[in-house]
Design a binder for these strands. Structure first.
Lengths: 236, 236
DNA sequence: GTCAATAAAAAATTCGATATTTTAATTTAG
DNA sequence: CTAAATTAAAATATCGAATTTTTTATTGAC
């Protein structure tokens, strides 16, 4: 197994799974976030068993865990369903992401040391490179998402508020489902790229207010794009 | 089984569990929040099986679900542990609770209809009654927690932001572990009672700013009390 | 006595089979 | 023909045993 293959996007920096249950969770999470398992889909165990070649017991544990963070819904005696998507939830998640990202960013900026700076710089440059690359649309989206994830993760990585980070992670993953929609709808990388640059500068200067301003624009713009994409999806 | 016995506090308005897995989750959650299963405790399956008379499979599912929301930690191949408690986390959770409670409250105040008002009024009066009652310390704490929970739940019950409520729930339960500490340490019901009254008034008047001001004081005061209690616990 | 290697015990994880519940199909009464 | 009731099929949830991994205890070399 190559390094690249194991570095599943989104799931974060979680190391290679040691148990079937853990692996199932990572796979399910990625597939739901990527939209391969669509919102509202009934997650029948037989189907999942075939798909992932993992037994029912670890699959159920993985689903339970995802239910805890809200990516799937556990219906008593009626199995699991991929949680739905709607414009209302997109807005809700966008605002929460903003709130939590700001909290995490504040703490991270005030604590970040040189190692943190280097991580931020490195991840930024990989992201920049991904934005300019000319892969196929499919592959490029995956690469972009991963680099985008890494960059934002790097920015808050000096934050020591465990719960803030935990909740931010939950919201980030949820929000990502929607971001994907808007990415496909509006393939405008230009403006986003500028925002990332501004974010990098603000972070390295420890300019809290500037960073917050940029991230606010950044997230709000995403929310708007998601809204448009959802509207477009309704009336095709 | 009597109604009262089934209405386990904290776990929210979740109806009576239909599956072992669900029941296990509610029992575990309550026991962890109440501190019966102490922070850091290794949750061995044999032990839990004896305690709750539930098989390993549903127990593991319940634990996985709690791991998703962060009440327990799942350690690969090494079982589950009750997540730890510290002064840092108490502060973190306090601030998050404030943030999320404000978001939920704002939305709820702007939407609440007459049914909502009635629910708020009713739950307030039960809380007031509980505060004045003269049961044994143990029983009174449970009753108070339950009524306190119901009141705060009622306040935000008109909020339609699903994710905000979900995260608020997670943080509320976590924070409750700490509140319990401070409750035992400082049995000062007086001030809290005034705060609740002020909260009720502000809510019924739809006075957003006032409600936010009160809840801010309310939560910050709790955080301070928790800090003192933890400090006292360190040097007995 | 300390450390590493090995063996035994305990614990966690997973599998396969079974029991229970839900869903779909079919029948039957009105 | 519709709607309740029954039956059959599918899917979920749970159990108990088998497997794998971790932890503890023991042995033996230095």
């Amino acid at each position: 197994m190559s390094l690249i293959e194991d570095h599943r996007l989104i799931t974060g920096s979680e190391s290679v799974a040691r148990s079937h249950s853990e692996r199932a969770m990572q796979l399910l999470r990625a597939d739901i976030v990527e939209g391969i398992l669509a919102p509202g889909l009934k997650l029948k165990l037989d189907m999942l068993r075939d798909r992932y070649e993992i037994g029912a017991a670890p699959l159920r544990e993985a689903l339970s865990r995802l239910a805890g963070e809200g990516l799937v819904i556990a219906q008593e005696q009626r199995g699991f369903v991929v949680s739905g998507m709607s414009a209302e939830e997109a807005n809700d998640l966008g605002e929460l992401r903003l709130l939590l990202e700001i909290e995490a960013l504040r703490d991270s900026l005030s604590r970040g040391n040189e190692a943190w700076q280097n991580r931020v710089i490195t991840s930024y440059h990989w992201l920049e490179r991904a934005e300019q690359s000319s892969l196929s649309l499919e592959g490029r989206l995956d690469e972009l998402e991963r680099r985008n994830f890494d960059f934002h993760e790097a920015l808050v990585s000096a934050c020591e508020r465990r719960w803030t980070l935990h909740l931010r992670g939950i919201v980030f993953r949820q929000h990502e489902r929607y971001r994907r929609l808007s990415r496909i709808h509006t393939a405008k990388t230009r403006l986003v790229s500028d925002e990332h640059r501004a974010l990098l500068d603000a972070a390295l200067e420890r300019n809290e207010d500037a960073a917050i301003a940029v991230i606010t624009t950044h997230i709000r713009r995403t929310t708007r794009a998601v809204g448009e994409a959802l509207q477009a999806a309704d009336q095709p």
